[in-house]
């Protein structure tokens, strides 16, 4: 890769792009949403949420809306607490399992490919068309086909989730690696660093914030694919429960599943935001 940076091109020594923003797929903005800080801000945000939910409850009561049209927040909350072990725990476990399996496989392959195209810069023109196709095509669309091949078990879903997460991890990591300031690489080389040392000591830490964002967005894509795939067929997981409860018009239970899915998604976001602050705080 250093040959790429230090090639006999007309050099532009001052254009040292930072790791944030830009790139072929710029999804980094999600990592920089402003958060509430301090007790006062957090309390007011929570208070507003309570007001909105309470207001919704009263509107539904006053307008005599039937539960099958729109379930009351209280009935959703009640269902969440009373039915959790019986109705929701098993599908949640199934979704979590397929999600993490897909994420691990996808991100491992994605990160490896990113390292590969960084070390062998010529390769990216062959790989990127497939990455673009994979990023832009909803992987849920593959589920019917994959089910014909691999049956109704976990396999087709894990494959789809890997295909949804891998390219996002790859594209962000590769961009992070590539954006490493050319002067920093030159600095390393001037101290006689090997390619491996450059990677370990300069490129990887420099790209870490982008890699974390790749994981975050990849995971969100992965959850989307997981739930979507379960809705298509197979009789497993939270997505399947959404279809099941809505077909029975059990809207309180439907709402409860929706809350669980949303919590899962927000959990992913919070986790990676935390990781980013902990290990890549120099970037912000």
């Amino acid at each position: 890769m250093a040959t790429d940076n230090l090639a006999d091109k007309i050099p532009d020594f001052n254009s040292s792009a930072g790791p944030q923003g830009g790139g072929p797929v710029d999804v980094t903005a999600i990592a920089s949403i402003r958060r509430a800080k301090g007790l006062k801000e957090i309390l007011s945000v929570l208070a507003l949420a309570v007001v909105v939910v309470t207001l919704l409850e009263f509107i539904l009561i006053w307008s005599h809306t039937e539960a099958y049209v729109f379930p009351k927040p209280t009935s959703i909350i009640r269902s969440l607490f009373t039915d959790f072990p019986t109705l929701y725990l098993k599908p949640l476990r199934q979704t979590v399992q397929t999600f993490f399996l897909g994420l691990i496989i996808g991100s491992t392959v994605g990160l490896s490919l990113a390292v590969l195209v960084t070390l062998k810069p010529g390769l990216d023109i062959f790989i990127s068309p497939y990455i673009i196709i994979l990023v832009t095509t909803p992987m849920v669309a593959l589920i019917p086909f994959l089910m014909l091949k691999f049956g109704f078990g976990m396999t087709p879903r894990v494959i789809a989730i890997s295909l949804a997460t891998g390219p996002m991890v790859m594209i962000n990591s590769a961009t992070g690696f590539r954006r490493t300031n050319a002067e920093l690489i030159a600095l390393g080389k001037s101290y006689g660093a090997t390619e491996f040392q450059l990677f370990r000591k300069i490129r990887f830490p420099f790209a870490l914030p982008m890699i974390i964002v790749g994981f975050m967005v990849g995971s969100i894509f992965g959850l989307l694919t997981a739930v979507g795939a379960e809705m298509v067929g197979g009789g497993m997981g939270l997505g399947n429960r959404l279809i099941y409860f809505s077909s029975l018009v059990q809207m309180s239970q439907f709402g409860a599943v929706l809350v669980i899915v949303a919590t899962f998604g927000v959990g992913i976001y919070s986790f990676f935001t935390f990781v980013n602050r902990k290990w890549a705080s120099w970037d912000v």
Partner: peptide
Amino acid sequence: MVFQDSNLLPWRTLMENIELPFQIK
């Protein structure tokens, strides 16, 4: 070499930055 930008690695402390060339070598 010294560049226009200090090129100190932002994730390393000053001392860790000074130690970097020693580690590489």
